[in-house]
Design a protein around this nucleic acid. Structure first.
Lengths: 248, 248
DNA sequence: GGCGATCCTTGATGCAGATCAAGACAAGAA
DNA sequence: TTCTTGTCTTGATCTGCATCAAGGATCGCC
């Protein structure tokens, strides 16, 4: 099973799929082997909660494989997703003891974890880690701000188009395959999760996806599999000028 | 005039009002004097644009006095404010050449600037700066994510109450005066700017402020001066559990 | 094959906030 | 004083999305 695979196959950081994108991306061989000694893997099943908001959190981690979400919940149950964690994304905050958000596995997830204390010590000794973490945090801040524009000012239709565009772009940048004109994506989220991300209801999400499909902006096969015949058309629908933006 | 005052009075970082909160907060005396040699002040008048989105930006800076805003604009003119910059907040991103947002002075503003190149070099040599910048960036990310919840899920009334609460809290933390029960704040933003921050129209902002006033949640004197008789009541209206959150 | 469970779609209706419109208020200029 | 300009308030109406409601599709399981 996948869990076993990861636990055995990835003991060597050199073979790690996120070696060149994660918080360790800038590390030299010696730094990497120091990290290697304090790391450990953990696996979570799809749907499982990785961290509860408010809980004590004594580790930080990188997503190795799978997708997780960061969500905030109000007392009356209203939910807003505030981050989508893809492979290489970092979870947790050095210098803070409790989690600020719920972290949930949307697919099966494998994380590369470090206990907080040793990691913080390493950060002090290893500027390459701190540098990379700063860079990643700044990227996330940009992504969050782009999302603020979406949440505050875009229509439901534009929100959906933006989400599809962002997922497609990320997909392309990770998998580096782009079949000429048409792009292909699988939505990693349910309609409800999309709604939580976009500040909509799941019904509105469903309706707008249907509308974009009917008008040929996207093609749907099943519920999750999307092909995008004309990416520029999609960006137009998203209300993004030229290039939009790259989420984290 | 204030401009003169600043230019002469604050040549010494030791006397700087943001010495212990800005990006230089952690610096030792020697590091500070190195920074001192490359810094320079710039002043902007209320309403003036400090940086245009997309423009080349060859400096980074800290807000010393005054208030500035970070906004994003869509081609059709829809605007969303994505950050409110108070004294000690940092502007610009090491490792990037162009500005991602419009930065606008909402009041008269004095900034402590560093040309990007020398600042980046200093950052490499001075971990205290990089550390502090990481910390500030993580705080901003938290604030941005809190704002995502507000934009995506809160009602107009809750949005207004949240904004007032956040400004009041910041005000209190900067000025350290809290007259027993009642808090006093001056809104640093016009109704339109508030609307841009909250993802509303200025009419809705006006109506909700009137409603909160009528119901005694806040008291208004003139258009900008607010007193808050019962802060917990305000937080309740904001939909925040216990403490809400601290915007950067 | 039938039966739940989960996820998704679609329709009917309602309402919060946008839009359109008119004027109030204050400060400065002529 | 009167006019102008910028800012804010308030009313009337409209509309995009939420809400309420009813099924459909797909899956695994007995």
């Amino acid at each position: 099973m996948a869990l076993q695979d990861i636990h055995s196959a990835h003991v060597d950081c050199g073979d790690c799929p996120i070696r060149h994108r994660a918080v360790c991306a800038r590390c030299e061989a010696d730094e990497l082997s120091a990290l290697e000694q304090i790391k450990y893997y953990r696996s979570y099943q799809s749907g499982q909660t990785i961290v509860w908001s408010g809980d004590r959190m004594d580790f930080v981690a990188s997503v190795v494989t799978g997708i997780a979400t960061l969500t905030q919940t109000m007392e009356d149950g209203r939910r807003q997703m505030v981050g989508l964690l893809l492979p290489s994304d970092f979870v947790g905050r050095p210098g803070r003891g409790t989690a600020a958000y719920d972290v949930t596995a949307t697919t099966d997830v494998v994380m590369c974890c470090f206990r907080k204390k040793p990691f913080e010590e390493m950060m002090g000794k290893t500027p390459h880690i701190a540098q990379r973490l700063l860079e990643m945090t700044l990227d996330e801040l940009d992504a969050a701000r782009e999302w603020m524009l979406l949440l505050g000012r875009k229509t439901a239709r534009e929100k959906i188009a933006s989400l599809v565009a962002i997922i497609a772009r990320r997909h392309a940048s990770l998998n580096l395959k782009r079949a000429g004109g048409a792009m292909v994506v699988d939505l990693p989220l349910t309609r409800e999760e999309m709604a939580d991300y976009l500040g909509l209801t799941l019904e509105t999400v469903s309706r707008q996806i249907s509308a974009l499909k009917k008008e040929g902006v996207i093609n749907l096969e099943g519920k999750r599999h999307i092909t995008i015949p004309d990416f520029d058309r999609l960006l137009e629908e998203a209300g993004d000028d030229q290039d939009g933006g790259m989420l984290v």
